[in-house]
């Protein structure tokens, strides 16, 4: 099993931390993992992306030109990464703020209204764990149990009180993802 994933969106959306949770979750299941961020003068509001690889074999290149899955959270990232999903791969996006929807027919496309759902739940910070849960529903590369462990590992101790909410969001994310017809 090898999963090459890109998560792309705005800085501040939790793109890098979502990748980090996933990478730690992979480690919990003894997989090889790599986490490679785009870094730069990219802060809240700018674009940010991270490439995460999870495999049962050693990972050669941490940099990819095609992805098994793309999680896309803003229009700029859609423009850039839609074409980089492998044929037969998966594209997951939040419809919020997307003006040009993906048009490819050779990949599976899913939507999740995570921005809206996080707002409805009264905690915008659950946005990225909702998405993570949605992703794991369609691409169960790690178990939910490992993900909860990965979540705990990637959060600093002072944030551990938010663990139950985030675990619930991961579970709930799996319920609200929809395959686009």
């Amino acid at each position: 099993m090898t999963e090459e994933l890109i998560i792309a969106g705005f800085g501040g959306q939790g793109v890098l931390s979502m990748g980090k949770i996933l990478a730690y979750s992979g480690v919990m299941q003894d997989y090889e993992v790599s986490w490679m961020p785009s870094y730069g003068p990219e802060m809240r509001g700018g674009t940010a992306n991270v490439t995460v690889m999870i495999s049962d074999k050693p990972i050669s290149s941490p940099i990819a030109h095609e992805f098994d899955t793309a999680i896309i959270l803003n229009q700029q990232s859609m423009d850039k990464f839609e074409s980089q999903v492998k044929k037969g791969g998966i594209l997951i996006y939040d419809t919020n703020g997307i003006t040009r929807h993906p048009s490819r027919t050779d990949i599976r496309i899913y939507t999740i209204d995570a921005t809206e759902e996080a707002a409805r739940l009264g905690n915008p910070r659950l946005f990225n764990t909702l998405i993570l849960g949605a992703y794991l529903k369609v691409r169960p590369v790690v178990t939910l149990e490992s993900t909860y462990k990965g979540l705990k590992k990637s959060l600093p101790e002072r944030a551990h009180k938010t663990l139950p909410q985030n675990e619930e969001a991961i579970r709930h994310g799996g319920e609200i993802i929809r395959e686009r017809a």
Binding site: K20, A23, S34, W35, M36, P37, Y39, P62
Partner: peptide, 10 residues
């Protein structure tokens, strides 16, 4: 280089 400095692995 910046790739290895910034990336996370086991």
């Amino acid at each position: 280089d910046g790739v290895i400095g910034q990336m996370m692995e086991k």
